[in-house]
Structure formats: structure tokens, C-alpha cells
Design a protein around this nucleic acid. Structure first.
Lengths: 336, 336
DNA sequence: AACTATACATGAATCGTTTCAGGTGATTTC
DNA sequence: GAAATCACCTGAAACGATTCATGTATAGTT
């Protein structure tokens, strides 16, 4: 049926130990043996049985990645970055999408533990600390993605959301806006809260008086954005904000739809609009969206690198990696 | 260190064989033993070592999924469907994104083979037939996704793209359009070609004279859509089409951006626009896009189900599953 | 010539499950 | 009441790789 290391050994006229050495420590084997074994492998079409390897050597060649919103292009980009890095190490990614459902989150953590992944990347939603602790004690290094680990218990890779919020509102103020609405939520989500905090800081430190109101949403989807836009437009015109800072690009796209419907192009002249994440759909919008860019691929790459390092050295100290966000200006905030 | 079945057996006062039976064939074990073993598992926090299980029993609990464009929300949805189905079987998904790069495709197929996945879902780009054959002879069932296997050599799950193209153009004609442009490519991609063929069939069968021109793109991205839109607008106005059928939603979004820029809202009055896939971003566009819906989650679910069935019965005959597309009408094709 | 160091090769033990032939005691059948 | 059937358990073998203590041959040193 399938070809094992024993078959290779026989064909090459060496012991199984030698074949294993060729596979793992070719430097310790004579060039002659390496050649013969390599040829046998080639001829037989042998591929290593990863299960046996994992069982005996205890090394895993997979890393789990659990994201909280598989529909969000931002996470797709992060995954892409992790994938690239993983491929260079011959590591495969086990993927799970929780769609903000804590029970799905639990299922995946158990499933990946059973698979004995080498490490786990996670953009957490629910309260997963207990599970993460158990994972760690089972020898699986967890790294938080897109979430700062405040108490420093786990490593994390994220972007400074407070700075991002500040960048966004600074930009709106600089382009002459004074009545700003922050549309986002749920505010229990750390990232959302931080973005709002940055926005507040910016508004308070401005040279002139700037009003900042909060329009809360229950999730970060396009539909919620549409609804929030409709609520804003329902007010008397003089109570409209002159700028909206959306908590992420999906919300911004929904808002844009509301704000240009009925043939009225309110963006950017009447109302400026800025998003967060700078996903490909921000640039692709009918009115290209200004946004706060997160280096998403880099986040993925870095997270994967860290998880491998931690797996290699279980005693390593957790560390927080924080990237700086970047303002990307497009038409949706063009000066009025 | 980690808890094994032996520890559980000892704690429960039974043999390892019994514990294994509780795990796999609880019906064959006395209720009393089941209870004692379950409790021991609970107390010790035992999780099955999948590597050992895979090694001995030869059953794999992972399925590979290789998609050709991880940025495309359509594939995210398909993956999501596969995920849902997989979870109900306790199966995890190894994910790989090739970004239309045949060498990446090869890397993933090898990697997944080494992992001994139970089966492989693949939206193919390059010529992978030889590799798929090798996979199959290694006992890994491949299923093509979003691609019809013309020669019937492998199972496939897809949507009738020809019918989709016909639906789109029928709709444009019904709403009074007569000069239609198909924007899409590369035409070597089976899906694209089929969509165009459907469009042609519709135009030729129309009661009145309908012109159909082809504006070819080199890939199916937003940027290509923007460029195609610019090329169209660069012509004298009387040579503009009165409707555009985009090969997928990403192209349509790019086209939309071109066609509403400069404050001119050409869609839908001057030019109607319809996409393909009905991704969430079609509904989310500034002018909500009409599109041809593919039952993307269902495609994923079905593909996963088939791959499991084929893995269970290696002698099963490949079968082609083809879903019907569905027309979704939104503002972008509102009657003029 | 005696000793040490170096370079490779060997093969049995091991990882944690599943499987299965065989065993035990209780219950049913004739 | 002997035989057959049933319901459960048991424990050792096996899956395919890696590891490591042990061995042998060759080169280098005194």
C-alpha cells in the first residue's frame, strides 16, 4: 500500500536509522548514503508519515489560526501573511472562523488541541483565558492577534488602536470638520473601545472646539453601518455631523451606502467619512475611502514567527508587539 | 507531562482497551464503565492524541482546502460552508491560498499530502491533474470546487456558469438594454469562458437585435475593473454600452467606481451594471449591485460531504454536482 | 605499536492509540 | 444440567517514524 521508511531503507541497502538521519540530519551521513537514500525515496515516491513523526518526536507541523470574522478582508490578509511565513517553514495552517460565537471558539480550541498544533494564533472574542492557559500547559503556545494582552500573560501582535483613532480624528479636524460622529461597537470589544478613546483624545486636544458623539452599533458589519447611516440622516439636517469616523471599513462601507443613496452624494462634501483597517474594499468603494491602515500581512507574519519561537522555547517570556497605524487619505475626506 | 489513555484507564480502574472502546464504541461498554471512564477523562482533562490515532487507525481528521483567491469573499463563503460541515464531523480544515500562483498550488498539495489529509477540496488554477492523480493513488480523495470536471475524472461541485451568464444578460435585455459589454477574463479560466458563452447565447436568442462586445481583463480584481471602466469611458459617448455584465463582483465593484467617479452617477440610468457571485460586497456597494448568486456556503458544505463520502469508499464513482445560479436584482440595473 | 578521536551505521526501544483474539461469568436454550 | 449464547473486559501486537546506546572502521597522535 503506502511506502514506509523501511521500504526505503531496504531499497537503499541501509538501516532505517540511516534513512531517518538523511531526512533530518543529512550532515551526519556520508554523501554516498545520502545519494542512495535520496534516490530510493525518489523512485518509491516516499513521503514522510507526519502522524508517526509527530507521535514519536513530539514535533507538530501545523499551527492553528482562529479568526473571529472570516468575512472581514482584514483577517483574510492577516491569515495570508501567516500563511506566507508558515510555508517557508514547511508548516500548514489549520483554519477556523468563529463568527463572533464563543461556543464555536471553544470547539476550535479543543479540536486544535486534539490535533496537537505547534502553536495557536487567535483573534479572541469571548473569554478564552482559561482555555488558553490549559493549552499552554499542554505545550501549545498561544499568541493573540489584533488584541493587546494587557496583563502580559500571553504574547500578542496588534496595532495601536488608540493612536489609530487619534490619527483619524486629527485628520478630520485638519480638514476642517468640527462635528464628528464615531460609529462603532460593541464597545466591550477592546479594539473598538481603544479607537474611540483615541478619537476622544484627539477631539479634546484640538485647538478649536470639536464635538464628538458616539453612535453605537452592536457589531461591525455592513448592515450595521447602513442602519447607523439611516439613523443619522433621519435627523434634521442641522444636526447632522460633518464627519463620520467608522470603527472599521465594513461599517464605513455601509455608511457610505446610506450617505450616497437617493442620488445624493453627501460624501465627501457634506459629510466626510473615514474607516479603519484599509481593506481592499476601502480603496474599491464608489467614493474611495480614507482609512487607517493596519499592516495586516505583517501582523500575520510576525505572529507566526513569534508562535514558532515560543514553541521552540517554552520558557520564553511573553511579549507584546505593537505596530503603528498609518493614515491613508482618499477622496472620502477631501477638503470641503 | 501530558495525559494518556493509560492514565485514564488506571484512574477509572479499567484496561486501556476499554477506554478506547468508550471513546469509539460506547455502545459496546457497560453503562457503569462508561460513567467511570467519562469521569476520569473529565478529571484529568484528557484529550485524544490525534497523531497516535491517525497512525494506528489510519483515519485522518483533517481535510485540506486550497483556494485560488483568498481575497475573494466568494471563496471565504465557500470555506465557511465547508467549515460548518466539517465541524459536525469533528474534522479540522487545513487551509491554503494560492493567489493564482501554480507554484504555490504545488507546495500546498505536497504539504497536505504529507499531512495525510482525509481529502482535498481544491479550486484549481494551474494544471494539477497529474498531482491530483498521485494524491488519489495515495488514498486522498480530491474534489474540485467551483470548477466542473469535464472529463468526469474527479468529483466536482460548481454552479452552472453558462446558465448564470444567460440569466444576467436576459435580465439586462428585459430591462431594455441593447448594447451590452461583457467585462471579464482571463478567458482561459473555465468559469469566465462559460459566463461569456451564456451571455452570448442570451444575446443571440433575444427577440430584438442585441450587441454584445467583450472587454477582456487579465485577472478578476477590483483594479482590473477600474481600468476596464476607464477604457470604456474614454470612448466617445455614443459608443458607450448601455449595460455592463462583469465576470465577477470584484470587477463589478471596480467598474462601479469608474462609472460614478467625478460626481457623475452613470449607474444605473446611463449604464446598467450586473456582477457575478453575489458576495456581501455586492449588496454593500454605494449603488447596490445586481448579481448572479452562487449558493456559496452550500457549495462548501456539499463539497465537504462528498469528499468524506469518497474517502470512506475509495471505489466510489466521481460525480458532478451542479447548482443553479440565481438572479438577484438590486438598484444597479433598475429600469431606465 | 598503542591509543584516541572521528565518522558513520545499526537496530531495538519508544511514542499513544486501536484492534482483536481470547477469557470470564452470567443467562438462555434444549 | 450441559451446551450455547451473550455481554463485557483484557492485554499484547501493531502503526511508522525518531532516538540513542552501541558498534566498527578509519585516520591521527604520541
Amino acid at each position: 500500500m503506502s511506502v514506509s521508511i523501511r521500504d526505503v531503507a531496504q531499497r537503499a541497502g541501509v538501516s532505517v536509522g540511516t534513512v531517518s538521519n538523511v531526512l533530518n540530519r543529512p550532515g551526519d551521513v556520508s554523501p554516498d548514503s545520502v545519494a542512495r537514500v535520496s534516490q530510493a525515496i525518489e523512485e518509491l515516491g516516499y513521503v514522510r508519515n507526519d502522524a508517526a513523526r509527530k507521535l514519536r518526536a513530539g514535533v507538530s507541523t501545523t499551527v492553528g489560526f482562529v479568526v473571529l470574522d472570516g468575512q472581514n478582508p482584514f483577517y483574510n490578509d492577516v491569515v495570508r501573511g501567516a500563511e506566507d511565513e508558515a510555508a517557508t517553514h514547511g508548516i500548514a495552517i489549520l483554519y477556523g472562523n468563529t463568527d463572533e460565537d464563543p461556543s464555536r471558539e471553544k470547539v476550535y480550541l479543543d479540536l486544535f488541541r486534539e490535533q496537537q498544533v505547534r502553536g495557536l494564533l487567535l483573534s479572541p472574542y469571548g473569554d478564552v483565558l482559561p482555555q488558553l492557559r490549559r493549552l499552554r500547559s499542554a505545550g501549545i503556545a498561544p499568541v493573540l492577534v489584533d488584541r493587546f494582552s494587557a496583563d502580559g500573560e500571553f504574547s500578542s501582535v496588534s496595532v495601536d488602536s488608540v493612536a489609530g483613532g487619534r490619527l483619524a480624528v486629527d485628520h478630520l479636524i485638519e480638514t476642517g470638520r468640527r462635528r464628528i460622529a464615531f460609529v462603532g461597537g460593541p464597545l466591550q470589544l477592546r479594539q473598538m473601545n481603544d479607537r474611540l478613546a483615541g478619537a476622544r483624545a484627539s477631539a479634546e486636544n484640538a485647538a478649536t472646539r470639536v464635538d464628538l458623539e458616539v453612535v453605537a452599533t452592536t457589531s461591525m458589519t455592513v448592515d450595521e453601518g447602513v442602519a447607523a447611516g439611516a439613523r443619522i440622516l433621519a435627523r434634521p439636517r442641522r444636526e447632522w455631523p460633518d464627519a463620520v469616523f467608522a470603527g472599521n471599513d465594513l461599517l464605513a462601507l455601509g455608511l457610505l451606502q446610506s450617505l450616497v443613496s437617493g442620488g445624493r452624494m453627501l460624501v465627501p462634501d457634506e459629510i466626510a467619512l473615514i474607516g479603519f483597517d484599509d481593506t481592499i474594499f476601502a480603496a474599491a468603494a464608489a467614493v474611495p475611502l480614507s482609512s487607517i491602515r493596519q499592516p495586516s500581512r505583517m501582523i500575520g507574519r510576525t505572529a507566526l514567527r513569534i508562535v514558532l519561537e515560543e514553541a521552540a522555547d517554552p520558557k520564553s517570556i511573553p511579549r507584546q508587539t505593537v505596530f503603528a497605524p498609518e493614515l491613508v487619505i482618499r477622496r472620502s475626506t477631501a477638503g470641503s
